[in-house]
Design a protein around this nucleic acid. Structure first.
Lengths: 210, 210
DNA sequence: GTTAAGTTTTATCGAACGATAAAATAAGAC
DNA sequence: GTCTTATTTTATCGTTCGATAAAACTTAAC
């Protein structure tokens, strides 16, 4: 990513404000995912095919742009259908978990999403804590509640912590597959779908009877 | 971490070469774990209680120091006893897995280790791939081999990929507990020991019969 | 107490960074 | 075709970064 080679700048095509702005956010997400949030605005401009000061007409600062990237990555990529899948009692839990995790990982298991998630977490960005909170509320807790319902286990308002952690460990086992593949770039031994089926099967098979 | 406030520098106590050098590496590990590897050498010096150019008498460059940090974190914190725990056939696999993961997580589940592991992974540092390779060779594969042995499943040189991924998902489930706690700073619902017992129990209970 | 050797600090360099101002250019209105 | 307005580029500022050189200091040997 050197700026040398006497860049044969061709003027960037003129675009309406909102179009250019959206384009910057979208491409910046992919750029920061690759190079981290400490990559320079000049490198970003080269990536966009524009010049560095152009960015400052659309965002007051680099960190304002980064915040916008977080918003699109974490908030706009949440599928509202997931709640319905998890609580669809016409299907067994194994089937529901398979459907959900296949859909969920289709969204998050890309280098862009995973790397930004970890970059943001390490930077202590507030939104990541919010994201985990939402995962617990809308994925982990529903999974536990529905498992209890299917197995006829009465559960009040306070879900047993051990069952929450067990659901988290299913989530974590699946998530770490993506970390190995997309963050560390190490080979994995199964396709995503098969890995999910296996992990879900173990979870529902061994789920504690009492 | 501002350098202002007219630092009332008291001269750093004089120390032998190797002592100072080791101290820099040790404290730098904790410093970079907190602030990331893009934190400045001036901030590091303040953290050490010394001055910035001092570092360059012990390491030729910032990245040379960082490499040394990687070495200590990833290579020197590997307990050779782990192999023995996993393959001690006088104990059942549940017991072995509990003992191993309690010992293993005692080493890695600290903010310092976990954050450096993720920082390095995102930076594409070579050593992290090596580390995952070693985990697979000396933890994941032995777990699968020993599980097969205990259940009387014949297994040749080529271990079924599905069983490797299943062991990885146990590892990942446990690892992600640490990520939530030490990277994202979100509350967890069980103590480490109980979480491990639970995850191991699910793994050995549901482990495929064929 | 002088000297010699090694450690720490002060001062500073050139490069690269985020950000700003002003000039150049493109596109639609009439 | 000219004018107006918004977009893009060139040029540049002040700061901060990694790194270096030289001065100041500390410690131990004799």
């Amino acid at each position: 990513m050197t700026e040398t080679s006497a860049a044969p700048r061709t003027r960037a095509p003129r675009k309406p404000f909102e179009v250019r702005r959206a384009e910057i956010v979208r491409k910046a997400a992919s750029f920061f995912a690759q190079f981290g949030f400490d990559a320079t605005t000049r490198e970003l401009a080269a990536w966009l095919g524009t010049t560095q000061p152009l960015m400052y007409r659309y965002f007051p600062s680099k960190s304002a742009l980064i915040d916008e990237v977080y918003q699109t990555v974490f908030l706009q990529s949440w599928d509202e259908a997931w709640d319905a899948i998890l609580s669809d009692r016409s299907l067994g839990m194994a089937e529901r978990l398979n459907r959900f995790y296949n859909s969920y990982t289709d969204v998050i298991m890309h280098p862009e999403w995973m790397r930004i998630y970890l970059f943001a977490g390490l930077k202590g960005v507030e939104i990541t804590g919010d994201y985990i909170g939402r995962v617990e509320k809308r994925i982990i807790r529903p999974i536990v509640v529905e498992m209890c319902a299917e197995r006829g286990v009465a559960v009040g308002d306070d879900i047993p912590p051990a069952l929450l952690e067990l659901a988290w460990s299913l989530q974590g086992g699946i998530f770490y597959y993506g970390v190995r593949k997309f963050v560390y770039g190490t080979p994995v031994h199964e396709e995503k779908r098969a890995m999910i089926a296996s992990a879900v099967n173990v979870y529902v098979t061994a789920w504690p009877r009492a």
